[in-house]
Simulated scan of single mutants.
Amino acid sequence: MKNINWNNIRLVVILCVVVFLYAFTGKRNEGRKMTEADIEFTGNENFITKEKVNNLLIQSYGAVTGIQKVDLDLSNVEKILNENPMVEKAEVYATVDGKLKAVITQRKPVARIFEGSQSYYLDNRGGKMPLSDNETARVPLVTGDIEKADAKKMHKLLAYIYNDDFLNKNIIGLTVSPVGNMILRSRGDDYDIVFGKPINIEKKFENYKAFLQDAAKDTLIKNYKTINLKFTQQVVCTKK
């Protein structure tokens, strides 16, 4: 009679118990009903509200509460949220305690464009974004002959302003001239900043900041009508 290897038997029994518990837990988890929707925004933007997101979830299922986890089509929910023009990215998942979690990243406007009778935002990726009923973005207002501008280069200029703390706080407007030149306006100042074509952006703004540091030493800046940054080697000013 062969000796029974009790260690192997114990191992098989333990393995069977683990598989059973795993299957039982998985089945129980699939049958769990959702208790609520938990909506989280990743940034400070407020172009879409939690109520609006919740309404989009309701459109998918009628009501979130009471739905079994197994009946959730998370990819479809994400698709519906991502189709909203205020949303850059949505991530949706179900938590172990029965919540439908939606993490929303909203689009980030870098400028507001006035083109004919239309008004819309330009976001940080260069896409058109509708205005929001819930919040107005504090971004530069872009007017003039928009169609004469190089769209990609203008967006690069606006994105640079958006990502620079000083410029973001001080540049409040941009006008496109009939030949595609950019004229900027600074908060609280009477002069125009003649930027020219949206090229050599970093160098031009370096010159502008250096000029402002020197101008801060006296009060002559109040007498200027234009500050011309078109020439990368120098800043040319015109008095009133």
Rank of each mutant, 00 (worst) to 15 (best):
I4H: 04
I14A: 13
L15I: 03
C16S: 08
V18P: 05
V19A: 14
F20M: 13
F20S: 11
A23L: 13
F24V: 09
E30K: 15
N46D: 10
I48L: 09
L56F: 00
Q59I: 00
A63M: 04
D71R: 11
L72E: 09
D73G: 03
L74W: 01
S75C: 01
L81A: 07
N82E: 11
V92D: 11
V96S: 15
K101Q: 13
A102P: 03
K108P: 02
V110W: 00
V110L: 03
Q118L: 12
Y121L: 09
N124W: 07
N124T: 01
R125G: 09
N134S: 14
A137S: 08
V142A: 14
T143P: 09
D145S: 15
D145L: 06
D145W: 13
K153V: 11
L157A: 13
L157K: 02
I161N: 08
D164R: 07
F166D: 10
N168Q: 11
N168T: 01
V179N: 09
V179D: 10
M182R: 01
I183C: 05
L184Q: 08
G188K: 04
D190P: 06
G196H: 07
K197G: 02
N200Y: 08
K203E: 10
N207V: 05
D218N: 15
T219A: 11
L220F: 10
L220T: 14
I221D: 12
K225Q: 12
T226H: 04
K239N: 04
